[in-house]
């Protein structure tokens, strides 16, 4: 339950921290936008790790919850005129509530039944967003969303906003870390390993599942809200079912059940299409095939590869 402590890991984290602070100075306009998208995805995928990585709930609704957060903050900051500093936390609270309300009835389902029910939620979200023109703007979406600002300073450029996102990711990671090593995190992992034994060990299984699902919605809500204030515009396409699948793929490719894996997967999968840009039309074929190969040959994700390499040169974590 106590987080494993390792001086090398702490030193590595510190170096990564300093590098991350200096990074925007070396990256061009388009590169920083992709980097920002990676940070936002990382938050959504850390959230997904609660539901799927820990509690084993197969959800195809994560993009829908990202959409809830994005639309909530968009509506609050345009129609209601709230400053982002207020509308973002409200969007997170609202998305969490939606997550709990959706999760409570759905989490009795298991395996592919749950996958299909959550898929239904995500598809329904897009249908509503596309058609509820008066509130959600239809296919045109909502534009004119203000950039993030604190009194006296606006984070209007991608380079400035990078630091906001970076701070949000650090905070999200820290909180996820605390939950993982608390009794709540242990119970989530226990539920996936053996649901019956978890109940017999005094854990309310339904409650823990709803908590894991709501947490993943909360993180998705934060990711969506941060996304809306970066692009200043939201439309249904960004929250389609295919994005939910990408989030799950990020988690599995990084290494499910691990916060670092979630972040690594989000960064790798966000940059992968950029690296394969020269392949033109063929790149989605290569991308899909590559994902499939990783699934088949590295079921524990790319992070397991790194761990194996680390063990080989003798710097084991635990």
């Amino acid at each position: 339950m106590r987080p494993p402590r390792n001086r090398l890991a702490v030193a590595a984290a510190l170096v990564a921290f300093l590098l991350a602070l200096a990074l925007p100075a070396f990256v061009s306009g388009y590169g920083i936008r992709i980097l920002n998208l990676a940070l936002i995805s990382a938050i959504a995928v850390i959230g997904l790790n609660f539901a799927f990585g820990y509690a084993g709930l197969i959800t195809l609704a994560q993009a829908g919850f990202v959409g809830c957060g994005a639309y909530l903050t968009a509506i609050l900051s345009t129609t209601a005129g709230l400053p982002p500093l207020l509308s973002i936390p409200l969007a997170v609270v609202g998305t969490t509530a939606i997550g709990a309300a959706v999760g409570l009835p759905m989490l009795r389902l298991k395996g592919h039944y749950l996958a299909l029910a959550t898929l239904g939620f995500n598809v329904s979200f897009v249908i509503v967003a596309t058609n509820w023109k008066s509130v959600m703007g239809g296919t045109d979406g909502i534009s004119g969303i203000p950039s993030f600002a604190v009194p006296g300073f606006a984070f209007a450029t991608d380079h400035r906003y990078y630091y906001v996102l970076w701070l949000a990711l650090a905070l999200a990671t820290g909180i996820a870390w605390r939950i993982r090593y608390s009794h709540i995190g242990l119970a989530m992992i226990a539920v996936r390993d053996d649901e019956i034994a978890t109940g017999a060990a005094s854990v309310g299984v339904t409650r823990i599942k709803v908590q894991a699902f709501s947490l993943s919605a909360a993180y998705a809500g934060l990711a969506g809200a941060l996304f809306a204030h970066m692009t200043n515009f939201v439309a249904p396409d960004d929250f389609a079912l295919s994005h939910s699948i990408i989030y799950l793929a990020m988690l599995i490719i990084g290494g499910e059940g691990s916060i670092l894996g979630a972040i690594a997967g989000a960064v790798i999968v966000t940059f992968m299409p950029e690296l394969m840009r020269d392949l033109g039309q063929a790149y989605m074929i290569i991308f899909g095939s590559l994902m499939l190969l990783i699934l088949i040959f590295l079921p524990k994700g790319l992070l397991s590869l790194a761990a194996m390499a680390a063990r080989r040169i003798g710097i084991s974590g635990r």
């Binding site: 592919h112 996958a115 793929a249 599995i252 039309q281 991308f287 899909g288 095939s289 699934l295």
Partner: peptide
């Protein structure tokens, strides 16, 4: 393989087929 691997795997194949 686990259900989720099959789900993601067949989705990825779908992407390959579609493209």
């Amino acid at each position: 393989r686990p259900v989720v691997t099959v789900i993601i795997g067949t989705v990825m194949i779908g992407i390959v087929i579609q493209n």
